[in-house]
Design a protein around this nucleic acid. Structure first.
Lengths: 336, 336
DNA sequence: TTGTAGGCGTTATCAA
DNA sequence: TTGATAACGCCTACAA
């Protein structure tokens, strides 16, 4: 029966008849020790059930082996996928992921940055928009590497995707099919740069074709399938409904298809629908969804790699933009 | 230009002309100080850009204000939802979430437990199965409160759901509709207690009705919609295909519906399909999915609350089982 | 109400 | 290769 609940470094040292420093080295740089002493230390450590204290280690070494990640919400296929990719890439290097979400609330985002910084992380990943001044200021004085994803700024490493182009591709595809009246269902715009960019891109494509995307043909909805259905319903009930709809996210597009079908409107014959994201489900619904593919998992991997490189001091403020592309499936057809 | 990059507690103390202890109290128990000194400390802190060091604080106080969560994968609507619920409940109390995933790999799960424990967490949440002996042993000696979810054991706090009953409810519904030949698509069973229990429950219901669920009518698939389609395809291609299929998760059931429809098999007229989970999408597809509702978000909330209560020493090993229920929609109809 | 001082468990720098 | 020892930055009795 040990006096202390937990064995410490010194306890192991005493038991093995060596100095604390030696035990420390046995854990971190085993090669520096004689096989004999190494074995003795390991034996004692096992016997005492020694487990190193991460806090003490972090305090002494200045490294926490922890990466902070801030996402809009975990409750989204897209962000969960990014996180999962980050997580496994980091775990492979011995890093853990500290996760915070802000639910599209600027103040919460700033708070999350502050909390993670205070808690102590070796690096920070910001997924999605980052717009508040306070947060930007905090990051500047953070003292730890930061990598942004989805959207980026020049003074910081980033792994991005051209959301504007995504909207542009989706719209151009429909225009090419002969559609002249195109509607769009988007997420609430105020704190969502990605949705704003996608909408702007679509609008631009229409303008380039001499067409228009009036506010009446844009429906803002919560980022759920129900939102997609509601948005579709609104657009279809217009005096002059669109012949094609762009979903700001695939979930919207899928909702649109369901809503149209439930009203007896055939997709793609009577209504074309195109999404943006290319989530797993999109390929498997009927009709399979035409969409703009965003390499979600790849973004996560690259973020992790970029951050690790920054931490090691190998690279600095590296900017990567990943290619995206239109995936034509069965939910779009020639318009009138 | 400060000598040190970061201001410390003592720097603030010096600047404000008080002792370090006073500064410490100013941050933790402001009420104990004179408004005057409190203001002076805050002023100095702001001036120096002081931010407390979480590591040092954790080492000295023994609390990290961090909760570890281990999930099978983040890349799943269900688990992401649980995590999101946990995260917001914890954030409200000032706790942060350290996330690890094991991708259904027992060794990885044990490793995750070890890592989080070493890293230092005030509590641990295990989402999904927990079967390895090593992990169980670690948890026993962990010294921090633990709460399990989805499945539970008696020697530990848990927020559970009766997965066996879920399978039972799904099967009984189909039996009640007159189906005699019922198939099931389940996840890979070896390390997935939830899927095992759901299958066992369904099988039991069939036995109780004098029916059978032979291995040939059970298809193991990866937990994706593609898996659901593949499983459905396999069952439909049998010499004597089932007239109804249970999806071990909603995603499977949705995949089954898509696969059936793409083969010209009408749901529910020619094939009934029932799922388990009740994800958002299930209510919005056509036909809307009949399923067994699992209160996912509620599980996450309760886990967080239970863990916090344990940490505060208010309760011990509290076991909660949440009710589930069949939600009848349009994907099931009378069988022959 | 505020100050003093001894840890908290490691790492890392120098020596030996 | 190993040991002694000073940080690391904060918390918290105990004193004043």
């Amino acid at each position: 029966m040990a006096k202390r609940a937990k064995a410490r470094l010194v306890d192991v040292a005493r038991d093995a008849g060596v100095s604390p420093a030696t035990v420390s080295r046995a854990m971190a740089q085993p090669d520096l020790l004689t096989p004999d002493t190494l074995a003795r230390v390991h034996e004692s450590a096992r016997k005492l059930g020694y487990r190193p204290d991460g806090m003490a280690r972090a305090l002494a070494s200045g490294r926490t082996m922890t990466i902070g990640a801030i996402v809009p919400t975990l409750d989204s296929t897209i962000f969960a996928r990014v996180l999962q990719a980050m997580q496994s890439a980091l775990a492979r290097e011995g890093y853990q992921l500290l996760v915070a979400s802000h639910e599209m609330n600027p103040a919460a985002e700033t708070e999350a940055v502050r909390t993670l910084l205070t808690r102590g992380v070796d690096g920070l990943m910001l997924v999605g928009a980052e717009r508040s001044q306070d947060a930007a200021m905090l990051l500047r004085t953070a003292g730890v590497p930061v990598v942004l994803s989805w959207v980026g700024t020049s003074d910081c490493a980033a792994v991005t995707v051209d959301n504007r182009l995504a909207g542009h591709l989706a719209a151009r595809h429909l225009i090419g099919l002969g559609h002249r009246r195109i509607g769009m269902v988007v997420g609430h715009l105020p704190f969502n740069d990605r949705q704003q960019a996608r909408l702007a891109g679509a609008r631009q494509a229409l303008h380039e074709a001499g067409l228009d995307l009036p506010g009446a043909l844009v429906s803002e909805q919560g980022l759920t399938m129900a939102g997609g259905r509601a948005g579709c319903a609104r657009l279809l009930e217009l005096g002059e409904p669109p012949s094609a709809i762009i979903g700001g996210i695939d979930l919207f597009a899928i909702g649109c298809i369901q809503e149209a079908q439930s009203r007896g409107i055939a997709v793609p014959e009577a209504l074309s629908v195109v999404g943006i994201d290319d989530i797993e489900m999109s390929a498997h619904i009927t009709p399979a969804l035409t969409t703009v593919m965003i390499p979600t998992a790849r973004i996560g991997q690259l973020c992790a790699a970029t951050l690790l490189a920054e931490i090691k001091g190998e690279r600095r403020h590296e900017q990567t933009e990943l290619p995206i592309e239109l995936v034509v499936r069965q939910s779009t057809a020639a318009g009138r």
